[in-house]
Design a binder for these strands. Structure first.
Lengths: 363, 363
DNA sequence: TTGTATGCGTTATCAA
DNA sequence: TTGATAACGCATACAA
């Protein structure tokens, strides 16, 4: 029955056409519910649909893509999947994409620029319709801008902002977050507070610190420079833990007592907790610790971590909205300007912080 | 210069052919280093390659796929990315795939069967060359077998084994792992050991328990049934934490003292630690806790978790090897039988276990 | 050593 | 209401 000897189990549109007795064109129209399907006789429709089902016909996506120039896929470039920050974001992206029947092509840059570029090339070759980049530092630069801009591919970054007007961005309001964190400790009565600032190269570091300073100013709280340390730059996402430990050790060695520690992020906070515990200090009894991000573990740790939550999953979804907007705009030849979303952080109070001990309120 | 009015920035092979003055065929041969490229004049090669580069030519992957029937992509179906078990596996898969210039199409089933099926359909429509499924329970069944088997698509599962001979599998040697865990506690001198068994529906539960029992038998250690509880079935991957807590509470309420707790997996262990701590028991001073898996957080927790490590990342890589073997076999019309890998678990001793306290050795 | 022609599976444009 | 035809971009068999 098949013309081209049963080379494979794949049943093509022509097969459906032949066995149903109609032309491929008609089959296409019917099966896609194309506008012209309005004029197709119901009986015909039924026959075609039935034989399609009977033969188990499935459209060949590649052929369709070639023809329509739409791949129905989106590149999802993660700067490093071993950063727990990424997982909820990825989930959010995947979920939103799924709703639109788009498929994510997963790329993990391992924090390496060349890997990023290689993947970018692969993704472009595959004619992704849009690109989402999850990255909290700016190894993404000119190249991305150039290639993406030229090809008019909607792109969004999650976790950092790019200069220029070609790439949308979704970031948490770091300043508000920093503010929230310090405010919480302050309201608990803490006045001797140590700070571990983020690495210079990270996008979040500056605004987060700004928020902290602003709150301090507005509350008349003076940040003791001797109690401020900064994480070294590093590409390893899990270095936050070790460096958090080291920074805390450093803080501890100064013999300047503090009752609370504001860590740059959750990983740093875990490192701090480890160091404090090793030094014989109990969290939160003798020292409160607050993180930032609300990575999945924060809930599971004992004590569970008080932190400033980024709505990571929602941010992933938001990114998808943004790029889909772009995709549709392109389709309809509309212009669309990029979006710069700033999501609201949320203080999540758990077990690692508590009111300053009365006995410890020595000045 | 271009024939078809500059509709887009995309430069096609024909463009390269025209501007270089050769035919598309020649261009194709040169650019792909096809066998026939041997016979192409070096000068020609050079000219073509140069103009290709100058024009910024990039092959259209979709066209190539359509022609060659090879998508160079692999479906990666994760049963639930919010399970920390998955992240390292995903990393391993991604990395291995990257080495082969294959691209992962990411699908997260959210532990839902219908979602799994929908994704499977999407993946098949895209003519993935192989499928990797990361799942620790068997929501994967007949359907997968049928579709995958018929189409002759190499498939591998990580985390569970399927009946039949169409799907390869990579699982840790759970029995050895269970053995390792109990042996460790036993060697530390623990004799009053509580157990939290896994949910019935999980693949790992039975063999892991078997390993435990076997060690107990061989060591002449008697497992006290009163100190054995079982996690309830649940589809939520993070339920392990809450249920671990509940199970531990249950254990605690029996007022039967135990000096160590062997948890089904790391998440359960974290739940147990939380419950023990809440009950005023210190880990490991008053109760040792051991987990299973070595999820990323186990290292970051305080105390860090002693656990039986699954080589998750390596398992991801192994799965890629297996399916690539299958892909190549198909290509060369070779037959290849499926693989059933069983990787070696490794005891990772950290802070959550220690020798039984002398003072606590009351019988 | 290189060019011509054909087809992969779809879909869109026309004509019937 | 339906069918013939062309084209998407590439790679191969064959001809030159």
């Amino acid at each position: 029955m098949k013309r081209h000897g049963s080379k494979d189990a794949t049943v093509t549109m022509r097969d459906v056409a032949e066995t149903s007795g109609f032309s491929p064109a008609t089959v296409s129209i019917v099966l896609n519910n194309a506008p012209l399907a309005r004029y197709i006789a119901p009986a015909t429709k039924k026959r075609i649909e039935e034989t399609a089902k009977k033969l188990g016909y499935r459209p060949n996506a590649m052929a369709r893509f070639l023809r329509s120039n739409r791949s129905h896929s989106v590149g999802v470039m993660i700067f490093d999947i071993s950063d727990p920050f990424c997982t909820p974001v990825l989930r959010g992206i995947e979920n939103a994409l799924y709703q639109c029947s788009y498929v994510p092509i997963f790329a993990d840059a391992h924090n390496q620029r060349n890997r990023f570029e290689r993947y970018l090339e692969m993704l472009l070759d595959r004619h992704i319709e849009a690109l989402i980049v999850v990255a909290n530092w700016l190894f993404v630069d000119i190249h991305l801008l150039a290639d993406i801009g030229k090809r008019n591919i909607p792109a969004a970054t999650i976790g950092c902002e790019l200069p220029g007007d070609t790439v949308s961005s979704i970031v948490v309001d770091n300043e508000a977050g920093g503010r929230l964190a310090l405010e919480h400790l302050y309201q608990l009565g803490h006045r001797k507070i140590a700070f571990i600032r983020g690495p210079k190269m990270l996008f979040d570091t500056a605004p987060r610190w700004r928020g902290i300073q602003k709150f301090a100013n507005s509350a008349g709280f003076e940040i003791d420079p001797a109690l401020v340390v900064q994480l070294p730059d590093s590409l390893d996402p899990n270095s936050g833990f070790e460096n958090g430990q080291r920074c805390t050790d450093e803080l501890l060695q100064k013999k300047k007592r503090f009752t609370a520690l504001l860590a740059f992020d959750d990983l740093t906070a875990f490192g701090a907790i480890r160091a404090l515990t090793k030094a014989g200090l109990k969290v939160p009894e003798q020292c409160s610790v607050i993180g930032f991000d609300d990575v999945p573990f924060s809930l599971l740790a004992t004590p569970s971590l008080t932190t400033v939550r980024q709505p990571l999953e929602a941010m992933g979804g938001l990114a998808v909205n943004v790029i889909m907007e772009g995709v549709n705009a392109n389709l309809e030849k509309r212009e669309v300007s990029i979006a710069r979303h700033r999501t609201n952080p949320e203080l999540v109070i758990r077990e690692s912080t508590r009111a300053v001990a009365l006995s410890g309120a020595d000045d």
